[in-house]
Structure formats: C-alpha cells, structure tokens
C-alpha cells in the first residue's frame, strides 16, 4: 500500500443478516483515501454506502477482504474486526436529531469527545468554545440543550464533536440530507472551509451527486454493493464512463440530460 494512503479497503465483502434475510451488502469493494484528500462515495438507498462506513468503524462483520485505517495492522479482515482508535477515525452521523443526547448540553457533548471517561465542561471550557466558534456557533451555545438548536446548528455541534478529537480520518455519512437546502449549503461551505484549514482526510458519503463537488477531490459511485466508477470529481461529472453514472447524473432535476417527457 502507498505510503500516503490513510484508508485502504481491499476486496471488501460484507454479508448482512442470516438465513433468508441474508444480503450481500458489499461485493469486492476496493477504495483508497490518500492523506489530505477527500473522497465522495455516492450511491442510492440500498447501495451499501452506509455499510461501508460502518465497516470502516468496525461495526459490521467483514466476510472477506481487508481494511487498513492509518496503516499498520488492518482493522478488519476475515475473522477479525476491531474498532479503529478514536483519534484515528471519527464519523459524523446523518441525523442531527438523533446524534445528540437530548439531556446533554452542547458543551457536555463536546467534552465527552475530548475526555470520554471524565467529561468535565469546566476543565475543557476554552477548547470547547474554540471548537464551537470554529463551526460558527456563539460561545454561549456551550450551556444550551439540543432542543434549543435548529437542525443545521445541531449538525455543526456534531461536526465540532467529531473534529475536536483531531482524528486522522473523518467519515461523513449523509450529513446534509436531513437539512433544508439553504442550511445544506451553509454546512457544505463550512465543511469545505474546514477541509482547507485543517487539511482533513475525509470519506464523504451522499446520495446526492451534486453536493460532492464542493467538498471532494475524487468520487466513487457505488451501485448494488459494487463500485462502478471511481475518478476525479471533474472527470466523473463531465465524462462519466459507466451507464449507471450517466443515468444518475441525468436524473438530477435541472441537469442537461434531465427530462420529464417520454416514458
């Protein structure tokens, strides 16, 4: 594996469920995320994109293939799967309404990330305020509970919580799909900014092809558990090689190939 690859997935096979509910969620997926770059993983529901995220976090059993996060020992392979170290990989979850404990303040949520065993807001106050301000929230948010924030603000807290650990890799799973369009734009702009400032290495998962272009260098298109196309964002968007990618691009309302005529 290349010296600069922070995430390397090789021939990953994941089978979920047992008996008649068995589904082959990922079929021979290989993917590399180089240090300091961001890869978009795009696919429709059931394509296996969230399963890949869970596999990276060591949360689903792996039937075959290998996953390395940050080099060294693989975190997952046949017969073994371990959670990567918190400082190695962090995930920003999709739903801002379920990602924050309703009984904990924003300060408590971030303090838990800074010190999982003894989260003391007072001791980490300066660091927490610094991160809140970095994601565009006022320092006073530290005392507030999740229900006092809007969806977009909650997502900012979730981003701060994931980033304050200073992980080497960030996995963002559909982090804008539950938000209003104008809020989505704000969050994407924030992420694009943070990516440059902090030099993030990121796997950005989305069902929306269009959002990927703002925050990613490369894009991987996943369909029925297999990667159908991988390439630079510009290339894939302008010269898709696969028919499925083309269909996906044409289905976006307002895209050049989009039409409501015909059958």
């Amino acid at each position: 594996m290349s010296a600069r690859a922070l995430v390397e997935v090789e021939d990953l096979e994941v089978v979920l469920g047992t008996g008649t509910h068995r589904t082959h969620a990922l079929r021979g997926v290989s993917l590399t995320v180089q240090e300091g770059t961001s890869v978009g993983l795009v696919g429709e529901s059931g394509s296996g994109k969230s399963t890949l995220a869970k596999a990276l976090c060591g949360e689903v059993p792996v039937a075959g293939g290998t996953i390395w996060v940050g080099g060294g020992e693989p975190v997952a392979g046949p017969h073994r799967h371990t959670r990567p170290q918190p400082t190695m990989l962090q995930m920003i979850p999709q739903d801002p309404y379920s990602s924050l404990d309703p009984r904990h303040t924003a300060g408590q949520a971030i303090a838990e990330a800074l010190d999982p065993r003894r989260p003391r807001v007072r001791r980490h106050r300066d660091t927490i305020v610094e991160w809140l301000e970095r994601v565009g929230l006022p320092a006073g948010s530290i005392e507030k509970y999740p229900h006092e924030f809007s969806g977009g603000q909650r997502q900012r807290i979730a981003i701060a919580r994931a980033l304050c650990v200073r992980p080497r890799v960030i996995v963002a799973d559909e982090i804008t799909s539950a938000l209003d369009v104008s809020v989505q734009a704000e969050i994407l702009e924030l992420l694009a900014e943070l990516r440059v400032d902090l030099g993030l290495t990121m796997l950005f998962i989305s069902h929306n092809l269009a959002v990927v272009k703002h925050v990613c260098d490369r894009v991987a298109v996943i369909y029925h558990g297999s990667l159908v196309e991988t390439g630079d964002v510009e290339d894939v968007f302008t010269r898709p090689r696969e028919q499925y990618t083309q269909r996906l691009l044409d289905s976006v309302p307002g895209a050049p190939g989009f039409t409501l005529e015909g059958d």
Binding site: R83, P86, Q90, M91, S99, D101, E112, R117
Partner: peptide, 22 residues
C-alpha cells in the same frame, strides 16, 4: 440505536459509562 450512543462508543466511552450517561 440512536446515533448519540454509537457516537459515544466510537469516541471510546466504555460500555458501562455509555449506559449510565446516555
């Protein structure tokens, strides 16, 4: 199954503490 529980585990909070806290 809520994300704040899985996030806490990913952050390295030990299982018993996750139960007590969340």
């Amino acid at each position: 199954t809520r994300d704040y529980v899985s996030t806490a585990r990913r952050l390295g909070v030990p299982g018993p503490l996750v139960i007590l806290r969340h």
